[in-house]
């Protein structure tokens, strides 16, 4: 019981990642594959952000009057994973843009975004 309470968040993140991975390798439609990649990315980002979470701590913005005394790091959530993942989200939207541009190009060439029909036309 204690194991479940301590770990159920991680298990749901792994489950989300499995959904995204399944869509990436099994789905036939290229846009569906991109959606799967998006879900995969957010699941990993979610896992990273959850590493920094602390019970009983507040958001990582220092109170203005608090800096006269010593600041206890246990009162503030770990900001480092937030910084790394903030840039990762913005990079993920630009990779999404490049992927969609490639899909548009493929559609103009083959008239479809289904993987098996494209493979038939190539052969």
């Amino acid at each position: 019981m204690e194991l479940i309470l301590a770990k159920y968040n991680y298990w749901i993140y792994v489950f989300l990642m499995m959904i995204g991975f399944y869509a990436m390798i099994v789905k036939n439609n290229l846009v569906k594959k991109i959606i799967g990649m998006s879900i995969f990315q957010t699941a990993i980002i979610l896992f990273y952000v959850s590493i920094g979470a602390k019970k009983g701590a507040t958001i990582p913005i220092i109170e203005h009057h608090a800096h006269s005394g010593a600041i206890d790091p246990a009162h503030y959530i770990n900001p480092l994973p937030h910084v790394l993942m903030l840039t990762a989200i913005v990079v993920s939207v630009s990779t999404l843009g490049v992927a969609l541009a490639l899909i548009l190009k493929i559609y103009h060439q083959y008239g479809t975004v289904e993987e098996d029909e494209i493979l038939e036309q190539i052969q």
Partner: peptide, 23 residues
Amino acid sequence: EMGAVDVAFTEASVGAGVSTVFM
């Protein structure tokens, strides 16, 4: 809810706003 306000702000503007428009 996890306390990552900056990440949430970025996701609200980037993930939910602009990437939906691109899609």
